[in-house]
């Protein structure tokens, strides 16, 4: 964890002539306007003048632009990829913001005011004073049904979402269950069909009525959308095939958690494997709490 507690005042000297959080203020204002529109129409994809970033498209440029537009000097930033703070791209994005803003960074979910994520929602429940920014590769939930943007925009306008139900139904006829395990489509606020970004469907229920503000940025596709706090987010399903999340027969091999999303780790070339929490902070916190209670017990 690299905590940089440099004051924003001297950041210019540290990083050359770039503006606070890299983007110029005009661009931030344009993005904030798009964000405001997105928040007022939950789940609706707002086109925005996405900029070319010094990181590659598909590597979080949308999330980075959203974060850059809302981050302030007082924020404490956490960046995760696959639930972990130490995956290479999370490290890279965190150091980008550390360099261009000088804000404090953290790996602790509870300590962060702003969380940028790729593919996971932290296991630790979010609060009202937190904002979570999702990196989105393909924002359009109807894209695999209809490749044309001109068509999908019409379909959203008319709330013409039957095709998606048909697709899920086809899964059921073919496999006996819905065969979508991540980026599982949701209806936001009873109106717009939305891609939750490629989080596992395990995380979908966390989006519903979440106290935190949830922002989504797709840089290459130049779209922003949002789920305001305490908004309904319902995963598509059928009465006789209700939505269900992943389960494991194992507990986390490190902290013993029974209710977190587990990553499978291959340990040898003879079929050996173990399952561990994908959320490294959650796992670490549980271990720390466990150690602390052990200590208390020994002291008694």
């Amino acid at each position: 964890m690299d905590t940089i507690s440099q004051s924003p005042d001297n950041f210019h000297a540290a990083s050359g002539s770039y503006n606070f959080a890299y983007l110029d203020e005009q661009t931030k204002r344009m993005i904030r306007r798009a964000l405001l529109k997105a928040i007022t129409i939950p789940g609706y994809q707002v086109p925005f003048g996405g900029r070319e970033m010094p990181l590659s498209y598909g590597w979080g440029t949308g999330g980075i632009q959203v974060t850059a537009s809302v981050i302030g000097p007082e924020d404490i930033l956490k960046v995760i990829d696959q639930g972990a703070d130490d995956t290479t791209n999370a490290v890279s994005i965190r150091s980008f913001f550390a360099k261009t803003t000088g804000v404090e960074t953290t790996t602790e979910t509870a300590e962060a005011t702003l969380i940028q994520t790729r593919h996971r929602i932290p296991e630790t429940p979010l609060r009202e004073d937190q904002v979570i920014v999702y990196q989105v590769p393909i924002p359009e939930p109807l894209r695999w049904l209809e490749p044309r943007e001109t068509e999908t925009r019409k379909m959203h306008g008319l709330a013409e979402y039957g095709g998606m139900h048909v697709r899920l139904y086809e899964d059921i006829t073919r496999y006996g269950k819905i065969a979508t395990s991540y980026d599982y489509p949701v209806i936001v606020n009873g109106r717009y069909l939305m891609r939750p970004s490629p989080i596992p469907k395990f995380d979908n229920p966390k989006m519903d009525q979440n106290p935190a503000l949830q922002l989504f940025g797709a840089g290459r596709e130049k779209r922003i959308y949002a789920v305001p706090p305490y908004t309904s987010v319902k995963s598509l399903d059928f009465e006789d095939h209700p939505f269900e999340i992943q389960t494991w027969d194992q507990d986390c091999a490190i902290c013993g958690s029974t209710d977190s999303f587990l990553d499978e780790v291959i340990t040898d070339d003879a079929g050996g494997r173990m399952f561990v929490c994908s959320d490294t902070d959650y796992c670490g916190q549980r271990m720390a709490a466990h150690d602390a209670s052990d200590e208390t017990e020994t002291n008694q």
């Binding site: 598909g58 590769p137 991540y182 490629p198």
Partner: peptide
């Protein structure tokens, strides 16, 4: 090319979670 190279090459980024989701599903199926 800048957009295309980014999205094609982003497949190099970790996808453990999505892949785990698919593994869980395909074993179940």
């Amino acid at each position: 090319a800048v957009e295309a190279q980014g999205f094609v090459q982003h497949l190099k980024l970790p996808h453990y979670v999505d892949f785990q989701s698919e593994l869980e599903l395909i074993r179940r199926l």
